[in-house]
Design a protein around this nucleic acid. Structure first.
Ligand SMILES: [Zn+2]
Ligand SMILES: [Zn+2]
Ligand SMILES: [Zn+2]
Ligand SMILES: [Zn+2]
Lengths: 624, 624
DNA sequence: GGGCGTTCAGAAAGTTCA
DNA sequence: TGAACTTTCTGAACGCCC
């Protein structure tokens, strides 16, 4: 009995397979198979002994067996498992219809002679109404297939994996049922996917609305049909599926008004974010990468833009500044004028640089000011990392004045300049460690360091920001860009480590910047003749929430000062440069010279107004 | 009879399942089948031989058969095989059933006027509600059968072996009752087996979570939304799914079916990414936030889902495991069995947990395996952080076995367990520092730590990944979620610092995990009696690119080993648990016991195949 | 009328708890 | 052990668009 059952199995399966592959509704093989199993049953093995017994009901089976046994090989029978009466009828029909051409076209209305409801599901033998997902199936198999075709073929059959599926047994082994569905040619591609579904639903909804409006012509319904459906018309059927879309449904052509396709413009980091969250946009068809992740087009463009601006603006010290720096370097290498001169020059260039970035344009005017105001120290300090030369322990940068030569400002000079101030040396030492650490972590990668500057620049926690979300998004974009950049230059394995290491080090920057700003405060405090403008500027970075408490560095009264550093001559230049080019603070501040330093409110409106003026005045230069 | 019973086991189901959709217990088809089988039985097979013999007690059966044969077609049954005269039948049904309005306005309610309880359990005669395990039984017999069908038939009847089973006597003789169950045709094949059970539970868990999340977080939404998600067909793939599947499935259509509106389903982290890149979607009209950034709805939902799954799955140690851990803790606190037992239990739970996450569903089967395979050690170690208790310097977690008490496993025990191995103690010490550092950085924030586990889990640089982009995107989503979480619990100013600090510490994890995996390698190496399966498992995490070079820890030949730790008894449990529940490795691995350890290729295909089997086998449980 | 999807009550598993 | 309950699956009936 065991052996027989196996043979029955294979017979049955080949039966269904062939029936599907020939696309005729039934094949001789199928009929023969039934005959076989019937014969098996007749020989004494109970039909039920065979786990593969295709349990069509008994009478059908015997009928089929009889027909098969008659040797006529009902080749054209549309069904193997018809009930007795039906089979008789179809036998008659068969004799009329005659042999069907074997290459019968796919699925032309086969209602040639017999009504469709005579057909039987190719999966389970239940009565079928027509094609479902490209096979003749019953309603239940149709639903079953729709529900399960996309589920992963996970479940294993509990039995041999070749259970026979009949109208009675179909619900016992879904894996085998599903398998058979595929076997007989059901196509899961014909199941509507989610977006097609949405379309369909929307269309339905649309039509229904129209019909409702036109037929009902109730005054309330017509003008605001959308609203009515949104609020859940109680009289209407509650259609769950539609419910979901109602909020986004516009009665008429959503599609038309929608299609703001793609900003053909220069991409911003926000474009990158979209690309990353989208997944479709990735131009590379590859799903994976090898050691180095290739850059997407967007990334390349963004970084190229940054690189160009970097070269043209940030690294392009103008001659005046260069001269200035050169002369300061020779005359007062260790005075505080040196860093002031340099940073002033840089701040100008950096602001110009930032204004070249497309996304800066999208920021509120006030917030542009706030970003610059709140981040001066941060990006100045980050710049230090970028121009640091570890061999020389110096900052080095091209100098136009000395014709291609490089300026080189030893860090030691800074130490010395600040030695007169409390904790000045320690602070510089901290900064040095910070720089060195960063340099190691980044391997001096200028692009990475520039991106870090930008990430620091677009810091959503700067004080007074009006739209933190926007800044946050931009920052996220640059973070993503940095990530991608690193992944493109570091092997996958190390990329993450490097990336997070770099990001993490920014935290230290925050505290260093705070201390530097405090220190500068003191510097300004000590130089009475220092123009109030300078004070204001240094106070810029002081306005952060935590910054209102004066740093502990400066709390106790200072000891009798060493020869107080003086910033006489250059200060004028510094101030005038700022006022003329970058900041253009109101003249009144420059003129009100000897005003005693008093702890003004941290966010003096005048400053903001002034800086805003600068930004606005140059707004036309912003890249589109 | 013996032989036959075996065949019964493997045999397929009965042809006599009555038409399930009807309220009648017997459909004409079934009746006919019964007639057949009865005939077959008459030819010599005993009744209990036939797994399909639906042995209603004699009278009923013959009645049913007669009814079917007589063609009277019990009108109340809208049976499928009744093709013609359906209207007549239903009309008849109407007249019988009661005053259903003739205009059949709605779905027919099928208010059975004659309740089913007129049917009697075929085992005990109690009232029956329907079919259970393919026979008409009462509830108690159903439960009885489920509980005992697979128990050994050893128990002998205390009486003659032919006790009569009635509603009163049924509890007196289990063996006879069970025998009768089989006799009347109950099929133990229809009892869900272990893996099916697991799937079912997982699915329930998933759905519960989803429902909970959607209801909990959409308080403002319409009350129907819950219902829609509840009754909606599961398994439907969301828009995100399609996005994720991009090139994999529909190379062409994807682009066409773009205009998908809003993913109405449970959000994934990808939804979050979209939201973040979108900018318009931010539901809060606010552009800024104060100290603590409010969470968007998406974030809330995502985290709520995670939290629920975390509580229900990860932190829900089942009793068996709990027992095991308890007993191990008392007996062999310092042996290596302890960590093995615990981690095994955790790995199972973690895999379940991950499978509850909506986005996991969108990942390629192979990649699911690869993620788990490549990350076992990582997420085990991260788990350590989550359950670390700094006061006790222990891992602590709830124990069901000891009724709400907590297990507490001192880290020192781990040190001691590994003291026999080279560098074991140092490694544990490193791990301890890692844990403590993380604990400080996160302030023990469980959500943050869980997110970090997930970030580590979705690591695009795991070996052999087929779609790194997809994993990368998911990881980015979780990183974003972590960021948002931290921003919501930390003041803006510190949030970034904390966030990057936490992220950065993951780098250290990588190296610790590598070393641990190497160490486990050695452990496996030393214990010859250790089952090869165990070795394979520990090798799982060894497949990373950099992992092929053996850690320097273990390069030189080891000194004569101290008393080699042995993992005898528990290992069996360990292995069997793994094989049965979580990993289900191929039996061959379990049986081939004494195979000498040899350096197999790092990515033994068998492992992958095995693990894939696990994942696939449970795939239907995945939330849609 | 063909062929999709949607609905929803009912069948049949498991789970809980006294 | 068993009554009561929960959950998932199933499929007949139906709605809609082409
Ligand atoms: Zn079917
Ligand atoms: Zn099967
Ligand atoms: Zn009973
Ligand atoms: Zn007995």
């Amino acid at each position: 009995a065991k052996r027989k059952s196996t043979s029955t199995t294979s017979a049955m399966y080949s039966a269904s397979v062939s029936s599907s592959s020939t696309s005729s509704l039934v094949s001789p093989a199928a009929a023969a198979a039934n005959a076989t199993s019937a014969a098996a049953a007749a020989t004494g093995a109970t039909a039920e002994d065979s786990p593969f017994f295709s349990a069509f009901n008994g009478t059908e089976q015997s009928t089929a067996a009889a027909a098969g046994a008659s040797g006529l090989g009902r080749a054209s029978s549309p069904d193997t498992s018809q009930s007795a009466s039906e089979s008789a009828a179809s036998a008659a029909a068969d004799s009329v219809v005659g042999p069907r051409s074997p290459h019968r076209k796919r699925r032309y209305k086969m209602q040639l002679s017999q009504p469709l409801d005579q057909y039987r599901c190719h999966v389970c033998g239940d009565k079928a109404l027509g094609f479902n997902f490209d096979a003749v199936t019953c309603e239940s198999c149709k639903a079953f297939f729709r529900r399960n075709a996309f589920k992963n073929m996970d479940m294993k059959c509990n039995f041999s994996g070749s259970c026979s599926i009949s109208i009675n047994t179909r619900k016992f082994c879904s894996p085998c049922r599903l398998k058979k569905c595929f076997l007989i040619g059901m196509k899961k591609e014909l199941i509507l996917n989610e977006s097609q579904l949405q379309q369909r639903r929307q269309k339905t909804l649309c039509n229904r609305n129209r019909r409702y409006v036109t037929t009902a012509t109730t005054a309330s319904a017509s003008p605001i049909s959308r609203q009515s459906s949104t609020t859940g018309d109680p009289g209407r059927r509650s259609v769950c599926a539609y419910k979901l879309e109602e909020s986004s449904f516009y009665p008429d052509e959503t599609a038309l008004s929608e299609p703001s396709v793609e900003p053909p413009q220069r991409p911003t980091v926000l474009t990158l974010l979209e690309e990353c969250s989208d997944g479709l946009a990735s131009s590379s068809s590859e799903c994976s990468w090898d050691l180095y992740r290739p850059l997407s087009d967007t990334c390349t463009q963004l970084m190229e833009g940054i690189r160009v601006s970097l070269d043209n603006v940030v690294n392009n010290v103008n001659e005046t500044d260069s001269e200035q720096i050169s002369s300061t370097a020779t005359d007062k290498a260790t005075s505080l004028e040196m860093p002031f001169t340099i940073t002033l020059s840089f701040v100008q260039r950096f602001v110009s640089f930032v204004k070249c970035l497309p996304e800066f344009n999208y920021i509120d005017m006030d917030d542009r000011v706030n970003l610059i105001k709140g981040g001066v120290f941060h990006f100045i300090l980050m710049r230090g990392v970028a121009i640091y030369n570890p061999e020389l322990d110096s900052f080095t940068f091209l100098s136009k004045a000395s014709s291609g030569h490089r300026h080189s400002v030893p860090l030691a000079a800074l130490t010395q300049s600040l030695s007169a101030y409390p904790s000045g040396q320690q602070l510089v030492e901290r900064y040095r460690r910070f720089i060195i650490g960063y340099h190691r972590a980044s391997s001096g990668d200028q692009m990475a360091l520039t991106l870090l500057q930008l990430i620091e620049f677009y810091n959503p926690s700067r004080p007074l920001l009006r739209n933190m979300h926007r800044i946050d998004r931009i920052q996220a974009g640059y973070i993503m860009l940095l990530k991608r950049h690193i992944e493109s230059v570091q092997p996958t394995q190390q990329a993450r480590r490097v990336f997070f290491d770099l990001m993490n080090r920014l935290s230290e920057l925050d505290s260093i910047a705070t201390d530097f700003s405090q220190l500068c405060h003191v510097v300004g405090f000590r130089c009475e003749e220092l123009n109030p403008l300078l004070l204001e500027i240094f106070e810029l970075s002081n306005g952060r929430p935590g910054g209102s408490r004066p740093s502990s560095l400066f709390e106790q009264p200072l000891p009798p000062p060493p020869p107080p550093p003086r910033l006489p001559t250059q200060c004028g230049t510094f101030i005038s440069t700022i006022s003329s080019c970058t900041l253009r603070l109101r003249p009144s501040f420059i003129s009100s010279n000897s005003r005693p330093y008093s702890r003004r409110p941290i966010t003096s409106p005048s400053i903001i107004a002034s800086i805003r003026e600068v930004i606005i005045s140059n707004a036309s230069q912003l890249c589109p």
